[in-house]
């Protein structure tokens, strides 16, 4: 069973052409990152606003919880049946699919952004205001840098959920890696089905790694605790002396 999966994956003919793995992979990434862009546009400003002002935090927690209970698969099918008549041809399936992925992805980004800002050390925030930072300066110079680890991990889990769920887009005739699972199922071709599953799994793990690397390099060392080793202090001293010259 497993060997048939590998031979399916290893067959060059399965990788090329409009139905090939390469094209499906690109489609999958298009759906995922397309949805992620909307998720960020909605989730981050709203999360920052709520975290900074402290208004509406309870409502957000409630909405995020309720959205988690919403069955995305059902929502996708419902939207396609109920609203496809009102959409331009190109968007009959793509519109509902993107909408569902955005609805799925927003809560993680929103609540992590909110929680990240909310959890900034109150003393640091107080000091920032006390030193004369304006509201916007407090937000961008203190709250956002300190909330960054949580914001990025929100984006990370949001992206993973989106990538995983983008597979069901294939059920409503769209492309992406889900195509192999759905087609394999209807053609009783287990190798194709499982090959698609392996690809989606690998894609998810790879994207998770990329996000982990981004997280590592974007967040201040003062927060992550990855300080320069004492051995590097020669550079530090050199840097310091150049500062004081």
């Amino acid at each position: 069973m497993i060997s048939s999966v590998f031979s399916w994956l290893g067959d060059g003919a399965n990788w090329s052409g409009p139905d090939g793995i390469t094209h499906r992979l690109v489609q999958h990434l298009e759906y995922s990152f397309g949805a992620l862009v909307f998720v960020l546009i909605i989730g981050i400003p709203l999360g920052l606003y709520i975290g900074h002002t402290g208004k509406g935090g309870v409502a957000i927690a409630g909405v995020a919880n309720a959205l988690r209970a919403l069955p995305t698969f059902g929502l996708l099918l419902y939207l396609v049946i109920a609203y496809s008549g009102n959409l331009p041809t190109d968007w009959i399936y793509l519109g509902p699919a993107l909408f569902v992925l955005v609805v799925l992805g927003v809560p993680a980004v929103l609540s992590n952004t909110y929680a990240g800002v909310q959890n900034v050390d109150p003393a640091a925030r107080d000091a920032a205001r006390g030193m004369g930072m304006t509201g916007m300066q407090v937000l961008w110079r203190v709250e956002v840098p300190n909330a960054l680890p949580l914001i990025i991990s929100g984006i990370r889990s949001s992206l993973l959920q989106i990538v995983a769920t983008a597979t069901i887009a294939a059920y409503v005739t769209l492309g992406g890696l889900g195509r192999f699972m759905i087609d394999g199922l209807s053609q009783r071709d287990y190798a194709q089905m499982a090959g698609g599953a392996v690809l989606v799994g690998l894609l998810a793990v790879a994207l998770d790694l990329v996000m982990a690397v981004i997280q590592r390099y974007v967040v201040s060392r003062g927060i992550t605790g990855r300080y320069a080793l004492p051995a590097a202090s020669a550079d530090v001293v050199a840097a310091e002396s150049s500062v004081s010259v």
Binding site: A123, A124, A127, A128, V142, N146, L148
Partner: peptide, 9 residues
């Protein structure tokens, strides 16, 4: 202030 309130980042 009491806990210094330094910016950790």
């Amino acid at each position: 202030i009491q806990h210094a309130g330094l910016f950790p980042h």
